[in-house]
């Protein structure tokens, strides 16, 4: 059966997109993210190379040849910023999907069945929440070692409690709604109630959370790299560039500034879109920030 008419779902998705884009700040953010994504995945075709070293031009300021200057190995900072976007966006996307894939079922099960399942799962969530996000990620890196997948997993696991809580809150509020009770009165099974009725009606807060958490994930990935435990070099990463740039503050001040601009704009864009989504989907004027979103 088709629980949701595809045309109806598409129409409502199109309506949401239109209303988000009607907010100027959100439209600008979407445009910026689209541009940086396209750029990051086509930069190689443009002849940009983040690894090529120019020994004659180390730690140079912006110039015609190197608009963003060069780093301590004579590499093009502009190229590294653009390739850094690729690292940042893929890690964040993977981390958010991982967090949702673990957190949403956890919250669904905890909220729907209650009882000991609820107590056990939520205790795990509480414990994860008791450590600041960066601390949890650091502890995980300490165990997993330093690699790109370790960074992804560490960042992703810190997002699990958020999704678990959002999904559980959704279940609890939807279970009070009569249409969920109605499905049970028709004789539906538990899994029908959970996956055919509750889950489809929970997509909006989960989607909003995914966008908001993308900004948190990008920040956390950069923070780990900045602390020297993120994705290992020579893969270009904004956090790593800020870390090295800080060493050369006196020699090349733009080195530490320009990657930060890219990082900040990306984070702000996700945050802005997240708030716009929340106002469109939930009719809320303010997206209440996740206290969990420690940014250290």
């Amino acid at each position: 059966m088709t629980p949701v008419l595809p045309s109806a779902a598409l129409a409502s998705a199109a309506r949401v997109v239109r209303r988000v884009l009607a907010q100027p700040a959100a439209a600008v953010s979407v445009a910026f993210l689209l541009a940086i994504t396209v750029l990051a995945f086509t930069a190689g075709l443009l002849g940009l190379d983040p690894l090529e070293q120019d020994m004659l031009a180390m730690l140079e300021g912006p110039s015609a040849a190197y608009p963003f200057g060069t780093d301590e190995l004579g590499r093009d900072i502009l190229a590294r910023v653009i390739f850094g976007a690729r690292t940042s966006l893929t890690t964040a996307a993977g981390a958010v999907l991982l967090a949702a894939a673990i957190g949403v079922p956890m919250g669904l099960v905890a909220g729907f069945f209650g009882g000991w399942r609820d107590v056990a799962l939520m205790r795990v969530v509480d414990l994860m929440l008791a450590l600041p996000g960066i601390m949890l990620a650091l502890a995980l890196i300490a165990v997993l070692g330093r690699s790109q997948s370790a960074a992804l997993v560490a960042v992703g696991l810190t997002g699990v409690p958020t999704f678990a809580r959002v999904a559980r809150a959704q279940v609890l509020s939807l279970r009070k709604r009569d249409f969920v009770t109605a499905v049970e009165a028709f004789g539906a099974t538990s899994s029908y109630s959970m996956f055919r009725t509750i889950l489809p009606n929970s997509w909006s807060p989960i989607l909003t959370q995914m966008v908001v958490l993308s900004s948190v994930a990008i920040l956390l990935e950069a923070a780990l790299a900045f602390l020297g435990v993120g994705i290992p070099p020579p893969t270009p990463s904004w956090g790593e560039m800020l870390r090295t740039g800080k060493e050369y503050l006196y020699d090349a001040p733009t080195y530490a500034v320009l990657p930060g601009v890219a990082l900040t704009l990306t984070i702000l864009s996700f945050d802005t879109i997240g708030r716009a989504l929340s106002s469109v989907l939930e009719g809320r004027d303010t997206a209440v920030p996740q206290p969990r979103a420690e940014r250290a």
Partner: peptide
């Protein structure tokens, strides 16, 4: 939005 969105380590670098 700016205050909570800008990474603290970058703000720190700028302030330094």
């Amino acid at each position: 939005a700016l205050a909570l969105g800008v990474p603290t380590f970058w703000v720190g670098i700028l302030l330094i």
